[in-house]
Amino acid sequence: MKIMVCLKQVPHQDARLDINADGTWIQEDNIKFEINSYDTYALEEALRTKDAGEADVFVVSIGPDRVGQALRTALGMGADRAIHVNDDEANGSDSLGLAKILAAVAKQENPDLIFMGLMSDDDNSAAVAPMLAQLLDIPHTTAAVKVERSNGTVTCDREIEGGAHEVVELTAPCLIAVQTGLNQVRYASLKGIMAAKKKPFDVKSVADLGLSGQVGTGAAKVKIDRIAPPLKGDTAEILSGSTAEVVAGLVSKIKELGLL
């Protein structure tokens, strides 16, 4: 079995979010990046299949040189090989552009299963996974919290509202976009990190994928014009002062609410 895992490298969850000069995204210089949290669970799910002796796992990511680090981390965790789509022509792609790039990789590789995260921690669109499945004409599910494989079918629990689960059965090849928390994600071991250095690492351009002119800023159907902190509406009254003063303020409010 061949499993493709799509990873996105995103700003670290604790990174400072300053707006860039043209006001359309954050300032990415001098901040730390990490693998999108949702995608780490997707990778873990793929590696568990591999540990059961069944799979060749390759990881794919789109982005500049820094993304190589995310792919090397994934190799250190146990993925077999990496494909890095590193090309300025991919910059500014919208969700559909990114899905087209991943679809082109998938068509060259013909995986049986594709795992990825439900959404990214930066853009929060949750769009690429269902789009990729559509472009490949394969079934998909999103927000998977349980994945079970048996002969040619994958049965998933997907999270819906209020703790309820919807059970769906997909015929492979298929795509599963996972929710966080469906497994416990492993760390790369020192041995894994050493072994990762010898693993195949392919770099591809947009032209290599036959997509020249079809992705990137020019081809994007939607774009961010402006990005800004939310307008402060009825924001909280802020208690300030020493710890003792703040605590006194809180106690008096709790008394006022009749809860003491």
């Binding site: 969700s95 559909l96 929060n124 769009a127 690429v128 789009m131 559509q134 472009l135 939607v222």
Partner: peptide
């Protein structure tokens, strides 16, 4: 909704349409 976020991007790709989420 959970159904909407599962279906909407797929439909957008099928229509070759732009997609704006949530």
């Amino acid at each position: 909704t959970p159904s909407g976020w599962d279906t909407a991007p797929r439909a957008a790709a099928a229509l070759d349409a732009g997609f704006v989420s949530e």
